[in-house]
Design a protein around this nucleic acid. Structure first.
Length: 266
DNA sequence: CTAAAATCCTGGTGGC
DNA sequence: TGCCACCAGGATTTTA
């Protein structure tokens, strides 16, 4: 479920039940999800209180009273749920965090790609990330500056987390449509006007998606989001473009598909 | 340098 | 109904 809007929605949903709670124990059903390998959550987590929860790129960052940070990446299929201890475990619950109010935070992840880090110094995980696209400090000029010495196609560049943080397959496609830019364009051929359009498209698409609590796909576990009803191109191949009526196309870029309108996007 | 493929995993879907 | 290939919101590492 996770690109920036879905992770932001998850953070906002977790704050009320979790801030102020203290971890009392953990059960790890799939140890490879805890990084680096061999870190015993039970050695350091119990007794630490959750002081704040924030999002950085697609990571959730829990600031803890003992000076550590619990950092979680949901990857493709992860979900975080607050449950009562008596609730039956789901077969895809991989890590259970026990809380001092008797509830549990459960990391459910069908595909086991998700990752949990417990670190005093988060730089190793968060250090190389690009700017937050919705930050008040991130202006047009900052976005233009990112393009210096960057080549390659614009769509993979938008999904490069060291270029800009939080954009994945859906919101890269939707932002490029909104900006009228073809996903296979070389980044160093974009005019300044096109880059400015892209800057505003990214911010508009991401903030509207957050307002709709992200997108819900086939995945039955994450149902809050409604932004999928507003997709202009993602998953719309073979259907007419709502703006011009041309057929939406789909093309492979690396291992992923890019969806675009061949008339609206040049 | 870019870019594509392989990798980590499970489950749903569509074709035959 | 079964089997199989392919697909999926990510990101790193390897290979070309």
């Amino acid at each position: 479920m996770p690109e920036l809007p879905e992770v932001e929605t998850t953070v906002r949903r977790l704050r009320q039940p979790l801030i102020g709670r203290t971890f009392t124990g953990t059960s790890v059903m799939w140890p490879p999800m805890v990084r680096p390998p061999g870190v015993e959550l039970n050695d350091r987590l119990p007794g630490q209180r959750i002081q704040s929860i924030r999002r950085r790129a697609k990571y959730l960052v829990f600031e803890l009273s003992g000076g550590d940070r619990l950092i979680i990446h949901l990857k493709m299929s992860g979900d975080l749920r607050v449950c009562e201890a008596a609730d039956a475990l789901d077969r895809h619950d991989r890590i259970v965090f026990e809380l001092d109010d008797g509830n549990q935070l459960r990391f459910n992840d069908t595909r086991k790609f998700g990752r949990v880090y417990l670190l005093a110094e988060p730089g190793a995980v968060l250090g190389r990330l690009g700017p937050e696209p919705l930050s008040g400090w991130f202006g047009e000029a900052d976005f233009l500056a990112l393009f210096e010495r960057r080549s390659g196609r614009i769509k993979p560049l938008l999904m490069d987390q060291t270029f800009i943080a939080g954009i994945g397959n859906i919101y890269a496609d939707e932002s490029l449509f909104e900006a009228g830019i073809h996903p296979l364009r070389a980044a160093d051929t974009l005019s300044e006007t096109e880059k400015r359009r892209l800057y505003h498209a990214i911010r508009q698409v991401l903030s509207l998606a957050i307002r709709h609590q992200g997108s819900t796909l086939r995945d039955a576990t994450y149902r809050e989001g409604r932004y999928q009803d507003r997709f202009c191109v993602y998953g719309q191949h073979g259907r007419p473009c709502a703006r011009c009526g041309s057929m939406i196309e789909r093309v492979r870029v690396g291992q992923r598909y890019a969806h675009f309108c061949p008339a609206c996007q040049q």
